[in-house]
Nucleic acid binder design. Sequence first.
DNA 1: TTCCTTGCAAATCGTTTGCATAATG
DNA 2: CATTATGCAAACGATTTGCAAGGAA
Lengths: 134, 134
Amino acid sequence: MALKHSRQRDAIYDFLKDRKDHPTAETVYMGVREQIPNISLGTVYRNLMVLKETGKIRTVEVGDGIVHFDPDTSEHNHFICTSCGRVEDIKMQSISSIKSIASEHFPGKITGYTAYFYGICEKCLVEEKAAAGE
Amino acid sequence: MALKHSRQRDAIYDFLKDRKDHPTAETVYMGVREQIPNISLGTVYRNLMVLKETGKIRTVEVGDGIVHFDPDTSEHNHFICTSCGRVEDIKMQSISSIKSIASEHFPGKITGYTAYFYGICEKCLVEEKAAAGE
DNA sequence: TTCCTTGCAAATCGTTTGCATAATG
DNA sequence: CATTATGCAAACGATTTGCAAGGAA
């Protein structure tokens, strides 16, 4: 169970660490192949799971049935554009109070929460406006 | 595109309508087979989708990669027990304000949200306590 | 040398779909 | 009769896994 160093795991984390677009395993695979052309999809999946278990990355369930990955493990929420599918971060500590609100309405012990917001992203709003103008 | 009546769709909705346990398609299939033994899984999936599109039921993405179904379409949130996997409802209108809070922190247009709470359900809490007492 | 990690391919699992037939309006 | 719905089985897509070979401690 002791973790050993691996070039492919490093490459996967390096690919992910500056991303803000919440890529899927497939996207990570495509990207990392530019560094390590013969890396296999299975290795990508295995390492994404390891990175998650060691707390270096987080998964995001967007609702499209595909798991997305997020290198930002700090407390934040996600916005999903129902028009283009883009996933963006929303940072706002103010809503962490919903955890205690929820506790008041629920008999069990609440330890965490995730919130997903849906709507139209800024980019799509602009495009909508442009299309209406024509 | 006009919807026709079907015995199997009725049976599926009847099975679902009083449930509070958010069953999966597989569970619905098993249950409905007691009424209609030769119903097919495909029919179950197709009708669950129809029921969702007509707004009679809702889907719940719990995080286990399987879609769960909920006959309660009123505004409410969900709690997932990290110990037993049980999915329960949490009703609390007070948090709908998070939508406007989120809007303040985000440049796009937010139209909806879903929130999932995680923790230990009452039943598991009791069992934990009982186990500690021994 | 020990044991973790890899690449490859096959297997799994939830879900979808094509098609000929049955049921509905 | 026109059309929607069904059962069956095959197809799908994302993810997992078994295994023999490679790499790290």
